[in-house]
Design a protein around this nucleic acid. Sequence first.
RNA 1: UGCCCGAUGGUGUAAUGGCAACACAUCUGGUUUUGGUCCAGACAUUCUAGGUUCGAGUCCUAGUCGGGUAACCA
Length: 564
Amino acid sequence: MNESEHKSLDFIRQRVSDDVANGKNDGRVHTRFPPEPNGYLHIGHAKSICLNFGLAEEFGGKCNLRFDDTNPEKEDTEFVDAIREDIRWLGFDWDAEYFASDYFEKLYLWAIDLIKQGKAYVCDQTVEQVREYRGGWDKPGKNSPHRDRTVEENLDLFSRMKDGEFKDGEKTLRAKIDMNSDNMNLRDPAMYRIRHATHHRTGDQWCIYPNYDWAHGQSDSIEGITHSVCTLEFEQHRPLYDWYVGQLEVHHPQQIEFAKLVISNTMMSKRKLTELVAGGFVEGWDDPRMPTISGFRRRGFTPESIRSFTKRVGITKHNSTTDIALMNLCIREHLNRIAPRVTGVLDPLKVVIENYPEGEFEMRTTGVNPEDENAGTREVPFGRELYIERSDFMEDAPKKFFRLTVGGEVRLRNAFFLKCNEVVKDETGEIVELRCTYDPETSGGKAPDGRKVKGTIHWISAVHAIDAEVRLYDVMFENEDPSDVPEGKDWKDLINPNALVVKQNAKVEPILAEASAGAPYQFVRNGYFCVDSKDSQPGKLVFNRTVTLKDAWSKQQKKGGSPK
RNA sequence: UGCCCGAUGGUGUAAUGGCAACACAUCUGGUUUUGGUCCAGACAUUCUAGGUUCGAGUCCUAGUCGGGUAACCA
Protein backbone atom coordinates (compact mmCIF):
# COMPACT_ATOMS: atom_id res chain seq x y z
CA MET A 1 0.00 0.00 0.00
CA ASN A 2 1.72 3.21 -1.07
CA GLU A 3 0.71 6.83 -0.94
CA SER A 4 -0.40 7.07 -4.56
CA GLU A 5 -3.13 4.53 -3.80
CA HIS A 6 -4.80 7.03 -1.54
CA LYS A 7 -8.19 6.87 -3.07
CA SER A 8 -11.12 5.39 -1.30
CA LEU A 9 -9.47 4.41 1.94
CA ASP A 10 -11.85 4.63 4.86
CA PHE A 11 -10.81 7.06 7.57
CA ILE A 12 -9.13 4.38 9.67
CA ARG A 13 -7.10 2.91 6.82
CA GLN A 14 -6.22 6.46 5.84
CA ARG A 15 -4.96 7.15 9.31
CA VAL A 16 -2.99 3.92 9.54
CA SER A 17 -1.58 4.60 6.10
CA ASP A 18 -0.45 8.05 7.24
CA ASP A 19 1.12 6.61 10.38
CA VAL A 20 3.04 4.07 8.34
CA ALA A 21 4.17 6.77 5.93
CA ASN A 22 5.31 8.94 8.82
CA GLY A 23 7.26 6.11 10.37
CA LYS A 24 5.15 6.07 13.53
CA ASN A 25 5.79 2.85 15.53
CA ASP A 26 8.69 2.25 13.08
CA GLY A 27 6.07 1.70 10.42
CA ARG A 28 4.66 -1.26 12.29
CA VAL A 29 0.94 -2.09 12.22
CA HIS A 30 -0.42 -4.32 14.94
CA THR A 31 -4.12 -4.63 15.69
CA ARG A 32 -6.19 -6.89 17.89
CA PHE A 33 -9.69 -8.28 18.08
CA PRO A 34 -10.74 -8.18 21.77
CA PRO A 35 -14.07 -9.93 22.41
CA GLU A 36 -15.39 -10.57 25.88
CA PRO A 37 -16.12 -14.31 26.10
CA ASN A 38 -19.63 -13.81 27.43
CA GLY A 39 -21.60 -14.80 24.34
CA TYR A 40 -21.29 -15.81 20.73
CA LEU A 41 -19.96 -13.54 18.04
CA HIS A 42 -22.52 -11.82 15.84
CA ILE A 43 -22.42 -10.09 12.49
CA GLY A 44 -21.39 -6.85 14.18
CA HIS A 45 -18.27 -8.57 15.44
CA ALA A 46 -17.63 -9.76 11.90
CA LYS A 47 -17.29 -6.12 10.87
CA SER A 48 -14.70 -5.56 13.57
CA ILE A 49 -12.90 -8.81 12.72
CA CYS A 50 -12.69 -7.93 9.05
CA LEU A 51 -11.43 -4.48 9.94
CA ASN A 52 -8.76 -5.56 12.41
CA PHE A 53 -7.50 -8.58 10.51
CA GLY A 54 -7.91 -6.69 7.23
CA LEU A 55 -5.74 -3.84 8.50
CA ALA A 56 -3.03 -6.28 9.49
CA GLU A 57 -3.15 -8.04 6.13
CA GLU A 58 -3.19 -4.88 4.06
CA PHE A 59 -0.35 -3.19 5.89
CA GLY A 60 1.83 -6.24 6.37
CA GLY A 61 1.18 -6.22 10.10
CA LYS A 62 -0.18 -8.52 12.76
CA CYS A 63 -3.47 -9.04 14.49
CA ASN A 64 -3.93 -10.66 17.88
CA LEU A 65 -6.92 -12.35 19.35
CA ARG A 66 -7.40 -11.22 22.91
CA PHE A 67 -10.18 -12.37 25.17
CA ASP A 68 -11.22 -9.48 27.37
CA ASP A 69 -12.04 -11.64 30.36
CA THR A 70 -12.10 -9.21 33.25
CA ASN A 71 -15.62 -10.01 34.45
CA PRO A 72 -15.63 -13.58 35.82
CA GLU A 73 -19.35 -13.63 36.50
CA LYS A 74 -20.39 -13.51 32.86
CA GLU A 75 -17.63 -15.37 31.09
CA ASP A 76 -17.13 -18.97 30.16
CA THR A 77 -14.82 -21.23 28.17
CA GLU A 78 -17.75 -22.33 26.00
CA PHE A 79 -17.69 -18.85 24.54
CA VAL A 80 -13.92 -18.85 24.15
CA ASP A 81 -14.09 -21.97 22.00
CA ALA A 82 -17.02 -20.69 19.95
CA ILE A 83 -15.27 -17.40 19.28
CA ARG A 84 -12.12 -19.13 18.03
CA GLU A 85 -14.17 -21.33 15.73
CA ASP A 86 -16.14 -18.43 14.30
CA ILE A 87 -13.08 -16.33 13.54
CA ARG A 88 -11.39 -19.25 11.79
CA TRP A 89 -14.53 -20.00 9.83
CA LEU A 90 -14.60 -16.39 8.64
CA GLY A 91 -11.18 -17.06 7.19
CA PHE A 92 -8.84 -15.32 9.62
CA ASP A 93 -5.99 -16.51 11.75
CA TRP A 94 -4.48 -14.57 14.60
CA ASP A 95 -0.80 -14.01 15.15
CA ALA A 96 -1.00 -14.48 18.90
CA GLU A 97 -3.72 -15.36 21.35
CA TYR A 98 -3.93 -13.73 24.76
CA PHE A 99 -6.33 -13.21 27.60
CA ALA A 100 -6.62 -10.04 29.60
CA SER A 101 -6.36 -12.42 32.54
CA ASP A 102 -2.78 -13.19 31.42
CA TYR A 103 -2.01 -9.67 32.59
CA PHE A 104 -3.69 -9.69 36.01
CA GLU A 105 -0.35 -9.85 37.80
CA LYS A 106 1.22 -7.12 35.66
CA LEU A 107 -1.85 -4.93 36.06
CA TYR A 108 -1.71 -5.41 39.82
CA LEU A 109 1.90 -4.30 39.90
CA TRP A 110 1.10 -1.28 37.78
CA ALA A 111 -1.73 -0.37 40.12
CA ILE A 112 0.78 -0.37 42.96
CA ASP A 113 2.97 1.97 40.90
CA LEU A 114 0.07 4.35 40.52
CA ILE A 115 -0.68 4.20 44.24
CA LYS A 116 2.95 4.99 44.99
CA GLN A 117 2.76 7.96 42.63
CA GLY A 118 -0.26 9.13 44.61
CA LYS A 119 -2.47 8.65 41.56
CA ALA A 120 -4.71 5.93 42.88
CA TYR A 121 -6.47 5.30 46.16
CA VAL A 122 -8.61 2.74 47.92
CA CYS A 123 -12.15 3.99 48.37
CA ASP A 124 -14.74 2.65 50.82
CA GLN A 125 -17.75 4.33 49.23
CA THR A 126 -20.73 2.26 48.21
CA VAL A 127 -22.00 2.27 44.63
CA GLU A 128 -24.71 4.72 45.70
CA GLN A 129 -22.25 7.05 47.39
CA VAL A 130 -19.94 7.00 44.39
CA ARG A 131 -22.82 7.91 42.14
CA GLU A 132 -23.86 10.75 44.42
CA TYR A 133 -20.34 12.11 44.77
CA ARG A 134 -19.70 11.90 41.05
CA GLY A 135 -22.15 14.78 40.50
CA GLY A 136 -23.76 15.24 37.11
CA TRP A 137 -23.39 16.95 33.76
CA ASP A 138 -24.35 20.22 35.34
CA LYS A 139 -23.00 19.45 38.84
CA PRO A 140 -19.33 19.21 39.76
CA GLY A 141 -18.33 16.11 41.65
CA LYS A 142 -17.16 15.97 45.27
CA ASN A 143 -13.99 14.27 46.37
CA SER A 144 -14.39 10.96 48.12
CA PRO A 145 -13.57 11.24 51.86
CA HIS A 146 -10.96 8.51 51.25
CA ARG A 147 -9.22 10.35 48.46
CA ASP A 148 -6.40 11.61 50.61
CA ARG A 149 -5.34 8.42 52.26
CA THR A 150 -1.59 8.09 52.54
CA VAL A 151 0.36 5.97 50.13
CA GLU A 152 1.17 3.53 52.94
CA GLU A 153 -2.45 3.20 53.92
CA ASN A 154 -3.49 2.65 50.30
CA LEU A 155 -0.77 0.09 49.74
CA ASP A 156 -1.85 -1.79 52.85
CA LEU A 157 -5.55 -1.65 51.99
CA PHE A 158 -5.03 -2.66 48.37
CA SER A 159 -2.91 -5.60 49.39
CA ARG A 160 -5.59 -6.70 51.84
CA MET A 161 -8.22 -6.30 49.09
CA LYS A 162 -6.23 -8.70 47.01
CA ASP A 163 -5.83 -11.10 49.91
CA GLY A 164 -9.56 -11.43 50.26
CA GLU A 165 -9.99 -9.62 53.52
CA PHE A 166 -13.01 -7.65 52.32
CA LYS A 167 -16.38 -8.56 50.96
CA ASP A 168 -17.67 -7.84 47.46
CA GLY A 169 -18.37 -4.16 46.98
CA GLU A 170 -16.73 -3.12 50.22
CA LYS A 171 -13.83 -1.33 48.59
CA THR A 172 -12.54 -0.27 45.22
CA LEU A 173 -9.28 1.05 43.91
CA ARG A 174 -9.85 4.34 42.12
CA ALA A 175 -7.72 6.51 39.90
CA LYS A 176 -7.18 9.98 41.31
CA ILE A 177 -7.91 12.22 38.34
CA ASP A 178 -10.45 15.04 38.46
CA MET A 179 -13.87 15.03 40.12
CA ASN A 180 -14.68 18.14 38.12
CA SER A 181 -13.96 16.88 34.65
CA ASP A 182 -16.48 17.44 31.86
CA ASN A 183 -15.79 13.83 30.99
CA MET A 184 -17.48 11.63 33.56
CA ASN A 185 -14.98 8.85 32.90
CA LEU A 186 -12.29 11.02 34.41
CA ARG A 187 -14.13 11.62 37.72
CA ASP A 188 -11.98 9.13 39.63
CA PRO A 189 -12.95 5.96 37.77
CA ALA A 190 -12.77 2.56 39.43
CA MET A 191 -9.73 0.45 38.52
CA TYR A 192 -10.49 -2.60 40.64
CA ARG A 193 -13.55 -4.07 42.26
CA ILE A 194 -13.82 -6.99 44.66
CA ARG A 195 -15.52 -10.11 43.29
CA HIS A 196 -15.25 -13.37 45.13
CA ALA A 197 -16.05 -15.32 42.00
CA THR A 198 -14.42 -18.17 40.16
CA HIS A 199 -12.82 -17.06 36.94
CA HIS A 200 -12.96 -19.44 33.97
CA ARG A 201 -9.16 -19.36 33.70
CA THR A 202 -7.65 -18.04 36.91
CA GLY A 203 -10.06 -19.90 39.14
CA ASP A 204 -10.02 -18.51 42.67
CA GLN A 205 -6.57 -17.00 42.42
CA TRP A 206 -7.96 -13.48 42.35
CA CYS A 207 -10.80 -11.81 44.15
CA ILE A 208 -10.08 -8.37 42.74
CA TYR A 209 -10.68 -7.79 39.04
CA PRO A 210 -9.58 -4.89 36.87
CA ASN A 211 -12.24 -2.81 35.19
CA TYR A 212 -12.35 -2.47 31.42
CA ASP A 213 -10.58 0.87 31.25
CA TRP A 214 -7.76 -0.20 33.52
CA ALA A 215 -7.25 -3.46 31.65
CA HIS A 216 -7.73 -2.58 28.03
CA GLY A 217 -5.16 0.05 27.20
CA GLN A 218 -2.45 -1.68 29.21
CA SER A 219 -3.21 -5.00 27.53
CA ASP A 220 -2.89 -3.27 24.17
CA SER A 221 0.33 -1.71 25.32
CA ILE A 222 1.85 -4.98 26.52
CA GLU A 223 1.13 -6.59 23.18
CA GLY A 224 2.64 -3.70 21.25
CA ILE A 225 -0.64 -2.87 19.59
CA THR A 226 -0.30 0.20 17.38
CA HIS A 227 -3.93 0.87 16.50
CA SER A 228 -6.61 -0.05 18.98
CA VAL A 229 -9.82 0.00 17.02
CA CYS A 230 -13.14 -0.01 18.85
CA THR A 231 -16.69 1.22 18.48
CA LEU A 232 -18.01 4.74 18.96
CA GLU A 233 -19.37 4.31 22.47
CA PHE A 234 -15.80 4.18 23.74
CA GLU A 235 -15.00 7.59 22.32
CA GLN A 236 -15.20 9.34 25.66
CA HIS A 237 -13.13 6.57 27.22
CA ARG A 238 -10.15 7.53 25.07
CA PRO A 239 -8.97 10.30 27.42
CA LEU A 240 -8.90 7.73 30.21
CA TYR A 241 -7.16 5.19 28.00
CA ASP A 242 -4.56 7.85 27.23
CA TRP A 243 -4.29 8.88 30.87
CA TYR A 244 -3.49 5.36 32.10
CA VAL A 245 -0.83 4.51 29.53
CA GLY A 246 0.48 8.06 29.90
CA GLN A 247 0.91 7.79 33.67
CA LEU A 248 2.59 4.41 33.31
CA GLU A 249 4.90 5.77 30.60
CA VAL A 250 4.59 2.62 28.51
CA HIS A 251 4.05 2.03 24.78
CA HIS A 252 1.06 4.12 23.80
CA PRO A 253 -1.33 2.59 21.24
CA GLN A 254 -3.75 4.85 19.39
CA GLN A 255 -7.42 4.19 20.06
CA ILE A 256 -9.64 4.84 17.03
CA GLU A 257 -13.41 4.53 17.09
CA PHE A 258 -15.81 3.60 14.30
CA ALA A 259 -19.58 3.21 14.08
CA LYS A 260 -20.83 -0.23 14.88
CA LEU A 261 -22.94 -2.20 12.46
CA VAL A 262 -26.72 -1.86 12.56
CA ILE A 263 -28.83 -3.94 10.19
CA SER A 264 -32.52 -3.43 9.58
CA ASN A 265 -34.94 -5.99 11.04
CA THR A 266 -32.10 -7.45 13.08
CA MET A 267 -31.39 -7.49 16.79
CA MET A 268 -27.75 -6.67 17.32
CA SER A 269 -27.61 -6.30 21.09
CA LYS A 270 -25.54 -9.07 22.65
CA ARG A 271 -27.49 -8.71 25.87
CA LYS A 272 -30.78 -9.25 24.08
CA LEU A 273 -29.44 -12.11 22.00
CA THR A 274 -28.41 -13.72 25.25
CA GLU A 275 -31.97 -13.24 26.46
CA LEU A 276 -33.37 -14.93 23.35
CA VAL A 277 -31.17 -17.95 23.96
CA ALA A 278 -31.76 -18.11 27.71
CA GLY A 279 -35.50 -17.62 27.32
CA GLY A 280 -35.84 -20.35 24.73
CA PHE A 281 -37.11 -18.00 22.03
CA VAL A 282 -34.61 -19.63 19.71
CA GLU A 283 -32.97 -23.02 19.69
CA GLY A 284 -29.59 -21.69 20.67
CA TRP A 285 -26.84 -19.30 19.68
CA ASP A 286 -26.56 -21.03 16.31
CA ASP A 287 -30.27 -20.95 15.53
CA PRO A 288 -30.40 -19.99 11.85
CA ARG A 289 -32.65 -17.05 12.73
CA MET A 290 -29.92 -15.55 14.89
CA PRO A 291 -27.58 -12.86 13.52
CA THR A 292 -24.66 -14.71 15.07
CA ILE A 293 -21.79 -15.97 12.96
CA SER A 294 -22.72 -19.51 13.95
CA GLY A 295 -26.36 -18.82 13.06
CA PHE A 296 -25.40 -17.55 9.64
CA ARG A 297 -23.11 -20.51 9.15
CA ARG A 298 -25.82 -23.00 10.03
CA ARG A 299 -28.24 -21.13 7.81
CA GLY A 300 -25.91 -21.63 4.86
CA PHE A 301 -24.13 -18.29 4.55
CA THR A 302 -20.57 -18.48 3.29
CA PRO A 303 -17.60 -16.70 4.87
CA GLU A 304 -17.03 -15.02 1.51
CA SER A 305 -20.50 -13.51 1.55
CA ILE A 306 -20.07 -12.12 5.05
CA ARG A 307 -16.69 -10.65 4.25
CA SER A 308 -18.10 -9.11 1.10
CA PHE A 309 -20.97 -7.68 3.12
CA THR A 310 -18.73 -6.01 5.68
CA LYS A 311 -16.69 -4.54 2.87
CA ARG A 312 -19.74 -3.01 1.22
CA VAL A 313 -20.98 -1.60 4.50
CA GLY A 314 -17.81 0.40 4.89
CA ILE A 315 -16.23 2.07 7.91
CA THR A 316 -17.36 5.50 9.06
CA LYS A 317 -17.93 7.50 12.21
CA HIS A 318 -21.61 8.04 11.81
CA ASN A 319 -24.41 5.74 12.83
CA SER A 320 -26.37 4.25 10.00
CA THR A 321 -28.65 1.33 9.37
CA THR A 322 -27.75 -1.08 6.62
CA ASP A 323 -30.64 -2.65 4.73
CA ILE A 324 -30.86 -6.40 5.33
CA ALA A 325 -31.30 -6.64 1.54
CA LEU A 326 -27.58 -6.00 1.19
CA MET A 327 -26.81 -9.20 3.12
CA ASN A 328 -29.17 -11.12 0.88
CA LEU A 329 -27.48 -9.69 -2.17
CA CYS A 330 -24.06 -10.78 -0.94
CA ILE A 331 -25.04 -14.34 -0.22
CA ARG A 332 -27.06 -14.71 -3.45
CA GLU A 333 -24.21 -13.35 -5.46
CA HIS A 334 -21.81 -15.93 -4.08
CA LEU A 335 -24.18 -18.89 -4.10
CA ASN A 336 -25.32 -18.13 -7.65
CA ARG A 337 -21.78 -18.78 -8.77
CA ILE A 338 -21.08 -21.93 -6.77
CA ALA A 339 -24.32 -23.73 -5.92
CA PRO A 340 -25.31 -26.78 -7.99
CA ARG A 341 -28.90 -26.66 -9.19
CA VAL A 342 -31.19 -29.39 -7.94
CA THR A 343 -34.91 -29.86 -7.61
CA GLY A 344 -36.72 -29.55 -4.36
CA VAL A 345 -40.48 -29.32 -4.26
CA LEU A 346 -41.60 -27.56 -1.09
CA ASP A 347 -45.36 -28.09 -1.37
CA PRO A 348 -45.81 -31.12 -3.60
CA LEU A 349 -48.84 -31.55 -5.85
CA LYS A 350 -49.19 -34.87 -7.68
CA VAL A 351 -49.32 -34.80 -11.46
CA VAL A 352 -50.35 -37.85 -13.46
CA ILE A 353 -49.40 -37.81 -17.12
CA GLU A 354 -52.15 -39.93 -18.65
CA ASN A 355 -50.44 -40.46 -21.97
CA TYR A 356 -47.13 -41.57 -20.44
CA PRO A 357 -46.82 -45.35 -20.11
CA GLU A 358 -47.14 -46.72 -16.62
CA GLY A 359 -43.96 -48.14 -15.09
CA GLU A 360 -41.69 -46.58 -17.69
CA PHE A 361 -39.02 -43.96 -17.11
CA GLU A 362 -36.48 -42.02 -19.11
CA MET A 363 -33.50 -39.95 -18.09
CA ARG A 364 -33.45 -36.24 -18.76
CA THR A 365 -30.24 -34.25 -18.86
CA THR A 366 -29.95 -31.13 -16.78
CA GLY A 367 -27.19 -28.57 -16.37
CA VAL A 368 -25.66 -28.42 -12.93
CA ASN A 369 -25.03 -24.67 -12.95
CA PRO A 370 -25.66 -22.33 -15.89
CA GLU A 371 -23.22 -19.85 -14.33
CA ASP A 372 -20.41 -22.37 -14.42
CA GLU A 373 -19.62 -24.18 -17.68
CA ASN A 374 -17.34 -26.60 -15.89
CA ALA A 375 -20.08 -27.77 -13.58
CA GLY A 376 -21.25 -30.31 -16.16
CA THR A 377 -24.57 -32.09 -16.45
CA ARG A 378 -26.60 -34.62 -14.55
CA GLU A 379 -29.35 -37.16 -15.37
CA VAL A 380 -32.70 -37.10 -13.66
CA PRO A 381 -35.55 -39.60 -14.09
CA PHE A 382 -38.86 -38.65 -15.69
CA GLY A 383 -42.02 -40.75 -15.58
CA ARG A 384 -45.78 -40.89 -15.49
CA GLU A 385 -46.16 -39.52 -11.98
CA LEU A 386 -44.51 -36.31 -10.91
CA TYR A 387 -44.68 -33.76 -8.15
CA ILE A 388 -44.85 -30.11 -9.00
CA GLU A 389 -45.03 -27.10 -6.74
CA ARG A 390 -48.56 -26.47 -5.51
CA SER A 391 -48.11 -22.76 -6.17
CA ASP A 392 -47.35 -23.54 -9.82
CA PHE A 393 -50.97 -24.43 -10.47
CA MET A 394 -54.06 -22.23 -10.28
CA GLU A 395 -57.63 -22.92 -11.20
CA ASP A 396 -58.61 -19.29 -11.57
CA ALA A 397 -55.40 -17.70 -12.63
CA PRO A 398 -54.85 -13.98 -13.15
CA LYS A 399 -53.72 -12.93 -16.62
CA LYS A 400 -50.07 -12.62 -15.62
CA PHE A 401 -49.88 -16.13 -14.21
CA PHE A 402 -47.39 -17.92 -16.48
CA ARG A 403 -47.70 -21.34 -14.87
CA LEU A 404 -50.09 -24.27 -15.11
CA THR A 405 -53.87 -23.83 -15.39
CA VAL A 406 -56.66 -26.09 -16.53
CA GLY A 407 -56.42 -26.33 -20.31
CA GLY A 408 -53.19 -24.37 -20.22
CA GLU A 409 -49.75 -25.50 -21.25
CA VAL A 410 -46.46 -25.07 -19.46
CA ARG A 411 -42.92 -26.35 -19.92
CA LEU A 412 -41.49 -28.89 -17.51
CA ARG A 413 -37.91 -27.81 -17.08
CA ASN A 414 -35.50 -29.92 -19.16
CA ALA A 415 -38.39 -32.10 -20.29
CA PHE A 416 -41.66 -31.60 -22.15
CA PHE A 417 -44.65 -29.37 -22.56
CA LEU A 418 -47.41 -30.35 -20.17
CA LYS A 419 -51.12 -29.65 -20.37
CA CYS A 420 -53.55 -29.94 -17.48
CA ASN A 421 -56.87 -31.58 -18.38
CA GLU A 422 -58.55 -32.19 -15.08
CA VAL A 423 -58.35 -31.31 -11.42
CA VAL A 424 -58.99 -34.01 -8.82
CA LYS A 425 -60.19 -32.80 -5.42
CA ASP A 426 -60.90 -34.48 -2.13
CA GLU A 427 -64.15 -34.10 -0.16
CA THR A 428 -62.91 -30.84 1.42
CA GLY A 429 -62.36 -29.30 -1.98
CA GLU A 430 -58.60 -29.43 -1.75
CA ILE A 431 -56.78 -30.21 -4.95
CA VAL A 432 -55.02 -33.55 -4.57
CA GLU A 433 -54.01 -34.42 -8.10
CA LEU A 434 -53.75 -33.04 -11.62
CA ARG A 435 -54.57 -35.23 -14.61
CA CYS A 436 -52.36 -34.07 -17.46
CA THR A 437 -50.99 -34.99 -20.87
CA TYR A 438 -47.55 -34.28 -22.23
CA ASP A 439 -46.41 -33.66 -25.79
CA PRO A 440 -43.60 -36.11 -26.70
CA GLU A 441 -42.71 -33.88 -29.66
CA THR A 442 -41.49 -31.15 -27.30
CA SER A 443 -38.58 -33.11 -25.86
CA GLY A 444 -36.07 -30.37 -26.49
CA GLY A 445 -38.27 -27.91 -24.66
CA LYS A 446 -39.52 -26.43 -27.91
CA ALA A 447 -42.53 -27.35 -30.00
CA PRO A 448 -41.91 -28.32 -33.67
CA ASP A 449 -45.03 -26.40 -34.65
CA GLY A 450 -43.57 -23.28 -33.11
CA ARG A 451 -46.13 -22.75 -30.38
CA LYS A 452 -44.79 -21.08 -27.29
CA VAL A 453 -45.33 -21.44 -23.58
CA LYS A 454 -44.78 -18.61 -21.19
CA GLY A 455 -43.69 -20.52 -18.15
CA THR A 456 -41.24 -23.22 -17.13
CA ILE A 457 -41.77 -25.09 -13.89
CA HIS A 458 -39.71 -27.60 -11.95
CA TRP A 459 -40.84 -31.16 -11.25
CA ILE A 460 -39.62 -34.35 -9.66
CA SER A 461 -40.39 -37.98 -10.40
CA ALA A 462 -42.79 -39.16 -7.70
CA VAL A 463 -41.35 -42.64 -7.25
CA HIS A 464 -37.76 -41.44 -7.15
CA ALA A 465 -38.21 -38.41 -4.91
CA ILE A 466 -37.16 -38.62 -1.28
CA ASP A 467 -38.84 -36.92 1.65
CA ALA A 468 -37.31 -34.00 3.46
CA GLU A 469 -38.13 -31.38 6.01
CA VAL A 470 -37.42 -27.89 4.80
CA ARG A 471 -37.09 -24.86 7.07
CA LEU A 472 -37.83 -21.49 5.57
CA TYR A 473 -36.47 -18.42 7.30
CA ASP A 474 -37.44 -14.80 7.25
CA VAL A 475 -36.31 -11.71 9.15
CA MET A 476 -36.57 -12.21 12.89
CA PHE A 477 -38.18 -8.81 13.42
CA GLU A 478 -40.76 -7.28 11.16
CA ASN A 479 -39.92 -3.74 12.23
CA GLU A 480 -36.96 -2.16 10.65
CA ASP A 481 -35.72 -1.07 14.06
CA PRO A 482 -36.46 -3.81 16.60
CA SER A 483 -35.19 -1.64 19.44
CA ASP A 484 -37.98 0.84 18.76
CA VAL A 485 -40.62 -0.78 20.96
CA PRO A 486 -44.16 0.64 21.05
CA GLU A 487 -45.60 1.74 24.42
CA GLY A 488 -46.73 -1.12 26.59
CA LYS A 489 -44.94 -3.75 24.55
CA ASP A 490 -41.89 -5.82 25.17
CA TRP A 491 -39.24 -6.05 22.47
CA LYS A 492 -39.79 -9.80 22.37
CA ASP A 493 -43.40 -9.22 21.29
CA LEU A 494 -41.93 -7.96 18.05
CA ILE A 495 -40.42 -11.30 17.09
CA ASN A 496 -41.69 -12.34 13.67
CA PRO A 497 -43.75 -15.53 14.19
CA ASN A 498 -43.02 -16.44 10.58
CA ALA A 499 -39.27 -16.12 10.95
CA LEU A 500 -39.32 -19.90 10.74
CA VAL A 501 -41.81 -21.83 8.61
CA VAL A 502 -41.38 -25.59 8.39
CA LYS A 503 -42.38 -27.62 5.36
CA GLN A 504 -42.67 -31.21 6.55
CA ASN A 505 -43.50 -32.90 3.26
CA ALA A 506 -41.00 -31.58 0.81
CA LYS A 507 -39.73 -33.83 -1.98
CA VAL A 508 -36.14 -33.65 -3.11
CA GLU A 509 -33.88 -35.43 -5.55
CA PRO A 510 -32.30 -38.69 -4.32
CA ILE A 511 -28.85 -37.25 -4.94
CA LEU A 512 -29.39 -35.01 -1.92
CA ALA A 513 -29.38 -37.98 0.43
CA GLU A 514 -25.60 -37.74 0.23
CA ALA A 515 -25.40 -33.97 0.63
CA SER A 516 -22.93 -32.97 3.31
CA ALA A 517 -23.96 -30.55 6.04
CA GLY A 518 -23.67 -26.95 5.00
CA ALA A 519 -22.93 -27.63 1.34
CA PRO A 520 -24.91 -25.14 -0.74
CA TYR A 521 -27.52 -26.08 -3.32
CA GLN A 522 -29.94 -24.09 -5.33
CA PHE A 523 -33.39 -25.62 -5.32
CA VAL A 524 -34.35 -24.30 -8.70
CA ARG A 525 -36.84 -21.45 -8.45
CA ASN A 526 -37.02 -21.85 -4.66
CA GLY A 527 -33.80 -20.43 -3.34
CA TYR A 528 -30.53 -21.60 -1.83
CA PHE A 529 -30.52 -24.42 0.70
CA CYS A 530 -28.16 -26.50 2.75
CA VAL A 531 -28.42 -29.57 4.93
CA ASP A 532 -28.88 -28.58 8.55
CA SER A 533 -25.76 -29.43 10.51
CA LYS A 534 -27.60 -30.43 13.68
CA ASP A 535 -30.95 -31.98 12.95
CA SER A 536 -30.51 -33.66 9.60
CA GLN A 537 -30.00 -37.43 9.59
CA PRO A 538 -29.84 -40.15 6.97
CA GLY A 539 -33.43 -41.03 6.23
CA LYS A 540 -34.65 -37.84 7.88
CA LEU A 541 -33.19 -35.01 5.90
CA VAL A 542 -33.54 -31.42 7.08
CA PHE A 543 -32.74 -28.48 4.82
CA ASN A 544 -32.38 -24.83 5.73
CA ARG A 545 -33.25 -22.17 3.21
CA THR A 546 -30.34 -19.79 3.31
CA VAL A 547 -32.02 -17.14 1.20
CA THR A 548 -34.72 -16.97 -1.45
CA LEU A 549 -34.09 -16.17 -5.06
CA LYS A 550 -35.11 -12.70 -6.09
CA ASP A 551 -38.76 -13.15 -6.81
CA ALA A 552 -40.43 -10.69 -9.14
CA TRP A 553 -43.64 -12.71 -9.25
CA SER A 554 -44.38 -12.78 -5.53
CA LYS A 555 -43.42 -9.12 -5.33
CA GLN A 556 -45.93 -8.32 -8.03
CA GLN A 557 -48.56 -10.44 -6.31
CA LYS A 558 -48.12 -8.61 -3.03
CA LYS A 559 -48.28 -5.28 -4.77
CA GLY A 560 -51.35 -6.05 -6.85
CA GLY A 561 -53.01 -8.00 -4.07
CA SER A 562 -53.91 -10.66 -6.63
CA PRO A 563 -55.21 -14.00 -5.35
CA LYS A 564 -52.69 -16.41 -3.99
C1' U B 1 -28.33 20.86 31.63
C1' G B 2 -22.61 19.82 30.40
C1' C B 3 -19.19 17.33 27.28
C1' C B 4 -17.97 14.41 22.86
C1' C B 5 -19.22 12.79 17.90
C1' G B 6 -21.82 12.96 13.39
C1' A B 7 -24.92 14.85 8.91
C1' U B 8 -23.96 13.37 0.69
C1' G B 9 -30.40 10.01 -3.31
C1' G B 10 -35.30 5.56 -0.18
C1' U B 11 -30.50 2.73 1.90
C1' G B 12 -25.04 2.02 2.52
C1' U B 13 -20.65 4.29 0.91
C1' A B 14 -17.01 7.50 -2.57
C1' A B 15 -15.27 12.09 -4.21
C1' U B 16 -8.14 13.96 0.14
C1' G B 17 -10.45 22.65 -2.46
C1' G B 18 -11.59 21.51 -9.27
C1' C B 19 -17.34 17.49 -13.92
C1' A B 20 -21.23 14.71 -7.01
C1' A B 21 -19.12 8.52 -8.34
C1' C B 22 -20.31 3.22 -6.99
C1' A B 23 -23.53 -0.42 -5.04
C1' C B 24 -28.24 -1.83 -2.98
C1' A B 25 -33.47 -0.89 -3.13
C1' U B 26 -37.44 0.77 -6.31
C1' C B 27 -39.50 1.47 -11.27
C1' U B 28 -39.11 0.66 -17.07
C1' G B 29 -37.58 -2.25 -21.04
C1' G B 30 -34.56 -6.42 -23.36
C1' U B 31 -32.51 -11.57 -23.04
C1' U B 32 -33.61 -16.24 -20.77
C1' U B 33 -35.98 -23.82 -20.61
C1' U B 34 -35.11 -20.82 -13.05
C1' G B 35 -40.75 -14.79 -12.82
C1' G B 36 -33.19 -16.51 -11.19
C1' U B 37 -28.79 -14.79 -13.80
C1' C B 38 -27.32 -11.23 -17.43
C1' C B 39 -27.97 -6.42 -20.26
C1' A B 40 -29.96 -1.34 -20.90
C1' G B 41 -32.52 2.92 -18.86
C1' A B 42 -34.88 6.14 -14.81
C1' C B 43 -33.96 8.01 -9.81
C1' A B 44 -29.44 14.18 -5.81
C1' U B 45 -28.63 21.35 -6.87
C1' U B 46 -24.36 17.17 -0.61
C1' C B 47 -29.15 19.63 6.80
C1' U B 48 -29.73 25.44 7.11
C1' A B 49 -27.61 30.40 7.08
C1' G B 50 -23.43 33.25 6.62
C1' G B 51 -18.05 33.56 5.51
C1' U B 52 -12.96 32.35 3.08
C1' U B 53 -11.70 31.25 -2.20
C1' C B 54 -11.16 32.18 -9.24
C1' G B 55 -13.62 27.75 -7.40
C1' A B 56 -16.60 24.60 -1.32
C1' G B 57 -19.90 18.26 -0.31
C1' U B 58 -14.85 19.27 1.38
C1' C B 59 -12.08 24.88 5.01
C1' C B 60 -14.19 28.69 8.99
C1' U B 61 -18.48 30.59 12.13
C1' A B 62 -23.36 30.07 13.92
C1' G B 63 -27.67 27.27 13.99
C1' U B 64 -30.81 22.78 13.19
C1' C B 65 -31.31 17.75 13.58
C1' G B 66 -29.42 12.87 15.07
C1' G B 67 -26.29 9.72 18.21
C1' G B 68 -23.23 8.78 22.52
C1' U B 69 -22.21 9.76 27.53
C1' A B 70 -23.07 10.31 34.68
C1' A B 71 -21.75 0.37 36.32
C1' C B 72 -17.64 -1.58 41.40
C1' C B 73 -20.30 -4.09 32.74
C1' A B 74 -17.51 -4.38 28.32
